[in-house]
Design a protein around this nucleic acid. Structure first.
Lengths: 185, 185
DNA sequence: GATCACACGTGAACC
DNA sequence: TGGTTCACGTGTGAT
């Protein structure tokens, strides 16, 4: 008897409490997980984990799909500045500044944007998208190859009703947007 | 003694086996989940579920971010066909077909695409992106307003090295891509 | 030897 | 009343 009671320095009840604690924690995790999984039917612990597994796989797949789409339409843009050497055949008599060069003019709500940048798949589409996100309505777009690797783009646009911006602000926003391209995952 | 043994029709051992089965199933789910969660340190059951929870939250957040981005650059395209009434002032002497009208010409690797479509924010950018996804390298782009609500776009391009397509195939792909715009979530 | 996490058998609750 | 799921206390192995 006495040997059984004193079998361990801290007696059996301690063990029971510890185990109780462990179960509580685990169950707490279970209910937390329960709140995360949408549209589950059985609330079995097993089924719950099963649904969690399926949900994770589902999310991962969706994410992969979206990322691939994104990548397919913006990956090439990375090559835009991937050759940061300004020693192209365009620094001869141009202002010798590195690309892209951005020029903005405004008359009332009318905007003229001139862009000179390294050509690359997706660059033009991305530019237009970014311009339109600044609440500009495209009027005319002209794009022509300049050197073998650079592009001259001219865009005319108008501010949407109720939107306006100063020239400097617009220039800053455009530059920011283009930089955003380059570092986009 | 005998009453204890015959307490249930199929004796206690059945229950034991069932419970064993249940545990096995649950543990099986645990290990399956274990393989899905990246970079976990402790392999506690509790910690495992905890990490699973965090991972799910992480995935959901990433997905939301990506979807919002996507939405921001493609939402406006929905307005493209949101006025499906062909009774615009352009059905007068045009071929009276509903927009968009797509015309494709090819000479060797050189491609000419003419598009007549309802104007809308994001339309042009999306078009160019889709064209480029067909392994076409943009050469020249010209876009001008036609009626107050429609747009004439002319695109010259070249197939990337190693890529080719028949005129009909190209036309089909482009049409498909544009339809894809309209029904994109 | 103390702590931690686990699997087990068992009684009970809930259709 | 059977089938299914859960919580509990306990024994045990690993660190």
């Amino acid at each position: 008897m006495s040997s059984e009671e004193a079998r361990s320095s801290v007696c059996v009840e301690d063990h029971v409490m510890t185990e109780k604690k462990r179960r509580e924690k685990l169950n707490q995790q279970f209910v937390e997980l329960l709140g995360l999984i949408p549209g589950l039917k059985k609330i079995d612990k097993a089924s719950l984990i099963g649904d969690a597994i399926n949900y994770i796989r589902e999310l991962e797949e969706k994410l992969k799909t979206l990322e691939d789409k994104k990548r397919a339409s913006s990956n090439s843009v990375k090559s835009w500045n991937s050759r940061p050497s300004p020693n192209e055949n365009l620094t001869e008599n141009s202002s010798s500044k590195s690309l892209p060069e951005i020029e903005v003019k405004m008359v009332g709500k009318n905007v003229l944007v001139k862009l000179h940048c390294l050509a690359g798949k997706g660059v033009l589409a991305k530019m237009l998208a970014e311009i339109e996100e600044l609440h500009l309505v495209l009027r005319g777009v002209s794009s022509m190859p300049f050197t073998s690797s650079s592009l001259c783009v001219t865009v005319t646009a108008q501010f949407e009703e109720g939107y306006y911006m100063t020239v400097n602000e617009l220039l800053k926003r455009l530059s920011t947007a283009f930089i955003y391209f380059l570092y986009e995952d």
